[in-house]
Design a protein around this nucleic acid. Structure first.
Lengths: 196, 196
DNA sequence: CTCCGAGGAATGAATGTTCGTTCCGTTCAA
DNA sequence: TTGAACGGAACGAACATTCATTCCTCGGAG
């Protein structure tokens, strides 16, 4: 699943070095725009070494995708206040998602860029669904309670997530600055977008 | 600018065939993932012919980008009711943008995919700014009139545009269906996101 | 404690393939 | 007949991947 592992466990950091280099380069230049030897150079590793850890370039991009999609899901779900009032849950969701974007901007850029790409395999695709499950559950529940609008929760999710990722991208490009106040204002905008 | 043109004006449709093929392939597989000979094949044209019309692959992608960015801007601005009440202007904006997405789904996908890409030249970059100028003007004005929230108009634009493109992409992938009612609901969501 | 040799890990030059681009013989319109 | 337009074979560069070789680690013999 994770590719062949070297038998000496001390050297597992090579794998991480490769994953890190691949994350950055794939995020910046895309899958087809990134040459494998370039990944090797950035990871300070021989080109052939990559193939000791990953079957091929496609397996590598899938490994990067899964690693960070899992990290994202974990960051959102961990210690999530599932029993708090819904407005508070929305705030928690927003805060965690942005916290992740702040801690790992390259990872979010990578995830967005490779969303639904042709070279992602079935297992990676399945993770795409899974990662937004808490949001879907929340919005389904709030709709039932007539707190949010009578609109399919999938539509609301795409509105919030689409707006969010765009804001992050714009911030990364320096078009806007996402300080605490702006972030709060944006959260408020989107709550009003979804609330009844 | 537009590359060398054949001197016989009758044959200008070859250029269009190339642009059309390039639009579809670049939208589906990205810039680096699309081979020039493949574009030629789809355009039913010899590989060499492409280079009679475009200096190189980069010039081609820029030409596609400009063509459709112009078309998009035109579709939005044409007969726009600049003097209508602001809520109506917002509706007009929403309707026109979605009308474009509906008429030319591949073009919108292409534009989104190549947004701020490294291989776009300065002139193409300039068009990115220009195309959302009407929206910016509208949101600046409504903020002055205290109709929309006291949030930088750039932030509001990214919220609306981000939500919109995500909805279109989700619809293209079959995750949601954007019928007239859903579209109306979504417009309402985003108006409430921006209005005071 | 030192040295040796076995075997897995790592390497990067070599390989076959695919790409962007060019070149040139052919076709077509006038 | 002539010159522009065209197609597609051909070319060098760049790519993903392989593999013969080197490096490193460590167990055990002396």
């Amino acid at each position: 699943m994770t590719g062949p592992l070297p038998e000496n466990p001390d050297r597992g950091d090579k794998r991480e070095a490769i994953l890190d280099a691949a994350l950055t380069l794939f995020a910046e230049r895309g899958f087809h725009g990134t040459a494998v030897p370039l990944v090797a150079e950035r990871a300070k590793v021989g080109a052939g070494t990559i193939y000791r850890y990953f079957e091929n370039k496609e397996a590598l991009v899938n490994a990067v995708y899964r690693k960070w999609k899992h990290a994202f899901t974990a960051a959102v779900v961990e210690t999530f206040p599932f029993d708090a009032p819904v407005r508070e849950q929305f705030h928690a969701l927003w805060t965690r998602i942005f916290g992740f974007a702040n801690d790992h901007p390259t990872a979010l850029q990578f995830i967005e860029l490779h969303h639904h790409a042709a070279y992602l395999d079935a297992e990676s695709r399945a993770l795409e669904e899974q990662s937004l499950a808490p949001a879907r559950a929340l919005l389904d529940e709030t709709r039932r309670q007539q707190i949010t609008k009578d609109v399919p929760s999938a539509v609301l999710i795409h509105i919030v997530w689409g707006a969010f990722t765009r804001l992050v991208k714009a911030a990364a490009e320096g078009q806007i600055t996402l300080d605490a106040e702006t972030l709060d204002q944006a959260e408020n905008c989107l709550w009003e977008a979804v609330r009844r």
